[in-house]
Design a protein around this nucleic acid. Structure first.
Length: 346
DNA sequence: AAGGCGGGGCA
DNA sequence: TGCCCAGCCTT
């Protein structure tokens, strides 16, 4: 049986009911695709509901403040997605008269929309015959066809895109694309795929050559950078503290945090006050600096381990960027900061 | 072509 | 622990 036909049959019998599968509104489809980039369905789902409830139309998203968008996005990670999301919404409203691009090429021009997302929206909403290639597709095709080209190499990307495009059901690209991804998510999983009930096991190269654990091939693993963050948590008698917005390129761009002194290694209070950047807070001599957590809190990200100490300062004048506790809770902050705020109590 | 970017789930 | 998740952007 043809690959597409077999996949279609499997999909129609096994697909999950997901909220973005009941709409053909390109705004909702686009929103769901951005949320789901490098993100599991279970993790992204509550954010999808928050966004469509808060911003029912693309105009609502375009008119919001960046701060409000980032606050809604808080906890989901990869915050450039949220900034690009709103930039694209503004572009659609202001330059495209509120109308979504209706082709792969048009969609590709939107900020934050790459080959995958443009293919997904174009095929789901407009039945354009463009194949999606995401992590699921790499895994499924590499196993069934026994392709060991690294999926994160230039050649691998080209090869898998070409194969997916050949296999694509040109008459119903939406069902094919969703089926291939769903198959990877449910049946051909990274660990312990369900080969016993797999409709492709007879021809699957990985299954028949016992190479399941070896496919797909991925080039080298990223090494984790270790950093040491010292957050200065000012407290005034009026119940204020200080938060600052992270600027420039890097982690958590646009989010808020306490004044930060980054050091090359763990520091004591004697050394902390001698660090570059600390003197700018011009603390009063009678100020009290107290370490909140004796043992550094390790915040683990995919590419960084952040060893964090929170230093609570009382009896000092507050530097720039004072905020009340009520204002603080409306600002978007990294999960690391949110967890501290919760445990500290304020 | 390579590196950077979050947070969480799972074996 | 390490790997992966409906990837994209910058250098």
């Amino acid at each position: 049986m043809l690959f597409a036909k077999k996949l279609r049959t499997w999909y129609l019998e096994n697909k999950r009911d997901l909220p973005w599968r009941t709409t053909s509104n390109p705004y909702y489809i686009w929103l769901s695709e951005i949320i789901l980039q490098q993100t599991r369905v279970a993790q992204g789902m509550p954010y999808y509901f928050k966004f469509i409830n808060t911003f029912p139309e693309v105009q609502d998203l375009a008119n919001a403040s960046e701060e409000e968008v980032l606050k809604l996005w808080q906890g989901l990670g990869y915050y450039s997605r949220a900034r690009n999301l709103q930039a694209a919404a503004k572009h659609i409203v202001n330059e495209l008269d509120g109308n979504f691009p209706e082709s792969y090429n048009g969609l590709l021009k939107l900020k934050g929309v790459g080959d995958y997302t443009a293919s997904a929206v174009a095929s789901f909403c407009y039945a354009e015959a463009v194949a999606v290639v995401d992590g699921n597709v790499y895994r499924v095709l590499s196993r069934i066809f026994g392709i060991d080209t690294p999926i994160n190499s230039t050649e691998g990307k080209r090869q898998f895109k070409e194969l997916a495009q050949e296999l694509l059901d040109k008459k119903d690209p939406a069902t094919f694309n969703q089926g291939l991804m769903e198959f990877g998510a449910i049946q051909c999983t990274p660990q312990k795929p369900l080969c016993d009930t797999c409709p492709f096991s007879a021809e699957c190269v990985a299954y028949n050559q016992d190479r399941i654990s070896g496919l797909p091939v991925k080039l080298k693993k990223q090494k984790v950078r270790k950093r040491h963050f010292n957050y200065i948590v000012f407290l005034s008698e009026e119940g204020e503290t200080v938060l600052r917005q992270r600027k420039g390129r890097g982690i958590w761009e646009g989010l808020y945090e306490f004044p930060l002194v980054e050091t090359l290694s763990e520091v004591s209070v004697e050394n902390l006050v001698k660090e570059d950047g600390f003197e700018e807070y011009s603390m009063s001599p009678e100020a009290d600096v107290r370490l909140f957590n004796e043992e550094p809190i390790v915040h683990k990200l995919s590419h960084q381990h952040i060893y964090t100490k929170f230093w609570v300062v009382t009896g000092s004048d507050l530097p720039e960027n004072k905020v009340s506790v009520a204002e603080m809770e409306k600002l978007p902050v990294p999960v690391l900061i949110e967890k501290f705020i919760d445990s500290f109590g304020f």
